[in-house]
Design a protein around this nucleic acid. Structure first.
Lengths: 206, 206
DNA sequence: GTCCAATCTTGACCGTAGTCATGTTTGATA
DNA sequence: TATCAAACATGACTACGGTCAAGATTGGAC
């Protein structure tokens, strides 16, 4: 048996987790995150209530699983972007705009996803934090090697600043978008994100 | 009766709210936010459970009340800072570092306060959002008038960028600080905040 | 003082997240 | 094939956040 193959037990485990996950996401989209109960999910996935907690330690953890998928996509995208060797400013903007685009569909659910992942993203010893952070650092490194960025730039710090602007903008768009009183979109997400990231890259001062 | 005086009824109301608030905060500090139940709070404040919800629509709302106090302090501080007419870079850093300092004591509780206020801060039609935002815009305006900032700078955008960096740094410090596995502080909050804000003001590019 | 409507208080009640002791399945071992 | 411990599933149960109909207080009108 190679390391990649799974025993029947492991296959069933994966399968069950996947079934619960699918059931949950389907219901979140249909009824809303808050209106979906664990009982709804387990009934749809055809398992007992307790089984849910064998796979997700709390209801919100399903959202974490969702954003893990997004992170994997961003990582793939980052490879392409690095390979293209375009100017750092464009690479950064493209990476972050692409990542944001994933949240434009179903903003109602995305709001909960982002709130959840924010708490993980800022926790310094979360694996997802590091993976995301490293993505940005690598793009910045390329830019510094090309002489586009200041030689003395602290890349960790810069990556963090870009990351907060990204998350904040996303969060603001999602909150505004779902606010009951102001019906439509209040700004174009990707357009505004570009503008704010440019601002950081260029700086505020003369 | 002038507009500032309160009827007996109104006084009692204020008093009850204050009593509930104090009881809640005391318990949050002693037992932790999550370990404190509404019953704990109402028992300590000597009111019935339902009374709590006449004043705070949910448990987290107590934290909102807490951060409202912080905001009021920041507004006072902003007046002093504007009056001092120092360079915008210093004014901004001072305003935000002072605001952050309030969270350095009791980081465990502050974490919940910030998570809560983050969701309000990014919701564009929250009053607190506007008040906070305007503080930054006013400081930026002064800086632009003095020719320290680019003339074409979009102040709304700039304020937002500064604000996200502030909140993100605060959040990261609080999460790292409370993480069980990495005992001590991982960075000096105000020092790191200065550095990141400087980075935004100067920009990343050459 | 007496009435009344508005306002505030109360605690029994409900729905749901999350736990845990018990029962079931699995696959490795002999 | 029989045995067994580890892994997994189960649903009754608990504890808590939040609601609400009924009751108590208030202060103003007469």
């Amino acid at each position: 048996m190679t390391g990649l193959e799974l025993s029947r037990r492991e296959r069933k485990k994966e399968e069950t987790k996947e079934r619960i996950f699918r059931a949950a996401v389907k219901l979140f989209r249909d009824k809303g995150f808050e209106n979906t109960t664990i009982d709804d999910i387990t009934e749809r996935a055809d398992v007992a209530k307790g089984t849910f907690f064998n796979y997700f330690h709390k209801k919100e953890a399903v959202l974490g699983y969702l954003s893990a998928v997004r992170l994997a996509e961003a990582e793939e995208r980052a490879e392409e972007i690095l390979a293209a060797r375009r100017p750092a400013r464009e690479s950064l903007i493209e990476l972050l705009c692409d990542a944001a685009a994933g949240y434009e569909e179903d903003p109602e659910l995305s709001r909960f996803v982002v709130i959840e992942s924010m708490q993980r993203a800022f926790a310094p010893n979360e694996e997802v934090h590091h993976r995301w952070h490293n993505l940005l650092v690598r793009v910045l490194e390329q830019g510094r090697r090309n002489g586009e960025l200041r030689a003395d730039l602290d890349l960790q710090r810069a990556a963090f600043v870009l990351s907060t602007v990204y998350m904040g903008t996303l969060m603001m768009w999602l909150c505004g978008n779902n606010a009951p009183e102001c019906g439509g979109l209040q700004f174009d997400l990707r357009h505004e994100l570009r503008a704010r990231l440019s601002l950081v890259i260029d700086g505020l001062s003369v």
